[in-house]
Design a protein around this nucleic acid. Structure first.
Lengths: 115, 115
DNA sequence: CCATCATATAATTATATTCTTATGTGTGCA
DNA sequence: TGCACACATAAGAATATAATTATATGATGG
């Protein structure tokens, strides 16, 4: 048996389907280096707040991300304890950094900071 | 810049969407160890021939697989020259072997052999 | 304790996906 | 040369997905 096996085919295809959306995939890549709150994502993706919320919900429903309230905002972060996180991580490693998106936010003064 | 970057976000999400289907994902995993023809997939997945054909078409449309005619059959195989093959390979490595499916076929005498 | 801000949920619509059935195409063999 | 087999394509229906608009929730700060 292959030691790198971490998941069965059904779970794997469900995970890949979730990542098979440019918005969610970029969210996950971004979250690897920066926790973000919903309103930041709204700015970054130029998408309505409910649309963002719904993408985050899908990621949360299978525990890929967790949420933490900080002041008025709810910050999302990667759940590194997820059983399939090594699998996800392997995928994200192949993708270009998306830090630029956060840098732009900061330049516009839209980055949320909770002391 | 990250040396492991192989693809941009749009292409990556398209690839992941294609793999985000259990049938296609299993096809890809299977093809890593065995070339297969359409009628074998029909048996393996207990799915109609047009349904199989359509899945294979999607994989072929982005050049993930290639086809070769051998006698009456058209065999599909992985296109290892694909620009994103290392990315795909990284994903498939995490999945359990699917050889059993082919073994079963052989046991039923349904495996196609061309001399 | 009330108003506001950030976020979530619901309902709806538009579009994409995946299957089925029907039919077309092309190769090999009688 | 024509029939049968393997496969592809087309058309249509059922379902899933992802957006929008409208509304609800819930914490915070005044």
């Amino acid at each position: 048996m292959n030691k790198t096996v971490t998941t069965d085919m059904k779970r794997a295809s469900q995970l890949l389907k979730l990542l098979g959306d440019q918005t969610r995939l970029t969210m996950m890549k971004l979250l690897q280096s920066h926790d973000c709150c919903v309103c930041e994502f709204v700015e970054i993706f130029k998408m309505s707040q409910p649309a963002i919320s719904q993408h985050l919900r899908k990621l949360r429903d299978i525990d890929l991300v967790k949420e933490t309230r900080r002041g008025k905002w709810i910050f999302y972060s990667i759940n590194e304890e997820h059983k399939d996180y090594p699998f996800i991580q392997g995928i994200l490693e192949h993708l270009p950094e998306q830090d630029e998106l956060v840098t732009e936010l900061e330049a516009q003064g839209l980055r949320i900071c909770c002391e």
